[in-house]
């Protein structure tokens, strides 16, 4: 078992389960974010505050962070090692039929990571440590952070943030088109029939997640400009 952590398949296994975990998180994240699209923000603020106030989050947050960190560290390590397996490159690059995303997961992952840092600075940091205005929907009985206002503010004032978020969603889309299927392949949950099925499901999943995240800034942009 000790060899498992250092073996190529073992390392890929961790990439895979952290990936699945992060994909689950994305679904939850998107579900909550989709509330931004309904009503005047009350629903979203209540949900956001419920989540941040939930004691369970004290456990989930570090686990989630760990998921990200492991995914990134293993990715870096595997990529480095794989680079070393071919010291002399080809003159004519490999033309074998393989999706662009699958061959560039490290670059896509890096881009998503850059986006993630900006994203965290924009929202997570501000919510956690910054000053988000207080809002109350029941006449001051319960005070909520006006996260909706924060989000709406960012997206309607600075158009390049919208562009950035849409770009981020595109990177994420590409990363997921391969990552989703690849995760199942790595844990061995795949066979002749499911190879193509899982690839289709991967595209559906990636479209929903990336499309959803891209739609939110667009929504605000259109809502406030038009």
């Amino acid at each position: 078992m000790s060899k498992f952590f250092t073996s190529s398949i073992g390392q890929k296994f961790f990439m895979s389960i952290t990936g699945v975990f992060l994909m689950l998180f994305l679904m939850v994240h998107l579900t909550i974010n989709s509330l931004l699209l309904f009503g005047d923000g009350t629903l979203f603020n209540e949900a956001a505050n419920f989540m941040s106030g939930n004691p369970l989050m004290k456990v989930i947050e570090p686990v989630l962070a760990l998921g990200f960190i492991l995914h990134i560290i293993y990715a870096g390590y595997i990529t480095l090692k794989n680079q070393m397996a071919r010291p002399q490159k080809y003159k004519v690059a490999i033309k074998a039929k393989a999706s662009w995303a699958s061959k560039n997961m490290y670059i896509l992952g890096g881009l998503v990571l850059i986006f993630l840092v900006i994203h965290l600075a924009n929202f997570f940091w501000k919510i956690k440590f910054g000053t988000v205005p207080i809002i109350s929907y029941d006449g001051g009985q319960t005070e909520l952070h006006d996260v909706y206002g924060l989000v709406a503010g960012v997206f309607k004032v600075w158009w390049w943030y919208d562009a950035l978020y849409i770009a981020g969603a595109i990177f994420l889309f590409l990363h997921l088109t391969h990552g989703f299927w690849s995760a199942f392949q790595t844990i061995g949950w795949d066979n002749e029939k499911w190879v193509s099925r899982l690839k289709v499901i991967a595209y559906i999943y990636a479209t929903i997640v990336a499309g959803g995240f891209a739609f939110i800034p667009l929504y605000f942009l259109i809502k406030y400009i038009v």
């Binding site: 595997i78 090692k81 794989n82």
Partner: peptide, 24 residues
């Protein structure tokens, strides 16, 4: 040897068409 990142290039070039479902 490097590790598998599931690009499927091996399957595409294999002269005997051995599929990556065997990798799973």
């Amino acid at each position: 040897f490097g590790s598998c990142t599931n690009t499927g290039a091996c399957e595409a070039e294999c002269p005997k068409g051995i599929g990556i479902d065997f990798i799973a």
